[in-house]
Amino acid sequence: MTTATELSVEGVTLTAGAHRLVRDVSLTARPGEVVGLVGPNGSGKSSLLRAVYRVLRPDAGLVRVDGADAWRLPPRRLARTLAAVVQQSAADFDLSVRDVVAMGRTPHKRLLDGDDAEDVRLVEAALAAVDAVDFADRSFDRLSGGERQRVLIARALAQQPSLLVLDEPTNHLDVRHQLDVLGLLRRLPATVLVALHDLNLAAYHCDRLYVLRDGEVTAAGTPVDVLTPHLLAEVYGVSAEVEVHPRTGAPHVTFLPDAPPAPAAPAAPVREHAGS
Rank of each mutant, 00 (worst) to 15 (best):
A195G: 04
A102L: 07
Q149S: 06
A264T: 14
T28H: 04
S144N: 08
R23F: 14
Y210T: 13
D69A: 11
A202I: 12
L179D: 00
A240N: 01
H172W: 02
R155L: 05
L62R: 14
T170C: 04
A265T: 09
V55H: 11
L185H: 08
K109Q: 15
A267M: 10
G183S: 02
D225F: 04
A51I: 11
A125P: 10
G146D: 06
E33R: 10
A90R: 11
T5E: 01
R50C: 11
T28R: 08
P74I: 15
S139H: 10
P75H: 07
P261M: 11
L37F: 15
P263S: 05
V253N: 00
K109R: 15
V123K: 02
G104Q: 03
P189R: 03
R176K: 01
Q149T: 12
V238F: 11
K109Y: 13
D66E: 11
F93I: 00
L127P: 01
V235T: 10
G183N: 00
A79Y: 02
A129I: 12
R155W: 01
G215Q: 08
L157N: 01
A203M: 05
V120K: 10
L62P: 02
A90V: 14
G39R: 13
L199I: 07
I153L: 04
V100F: 07
L56Q: 08
T228P: 09
E272V: 13
V133D: 15
T106Q: 14
A68K: 03
L188S: 00
R271H: 13
A51T: 08
A128V: 15
A83P: 07
L227W: 04
V151E: 00
H172F: 07
A4S: 05
N200Y: 12
T106P: 04
S47K: 13
L256T: 13
H197V: 09
P74R: 14
P75V: 11
A268R: 14
V12Y: 00
G61N: 13
A274K: 07
A16W: 07
E234D: 13
A136P: 01
R76A: 15
V242L: 06
D115S: 13
D174E: 06
V12C: 03
R57A: 11
T248I: 11
R155P: 01
A60Y: 02
A267Q: 14
D258I: 03
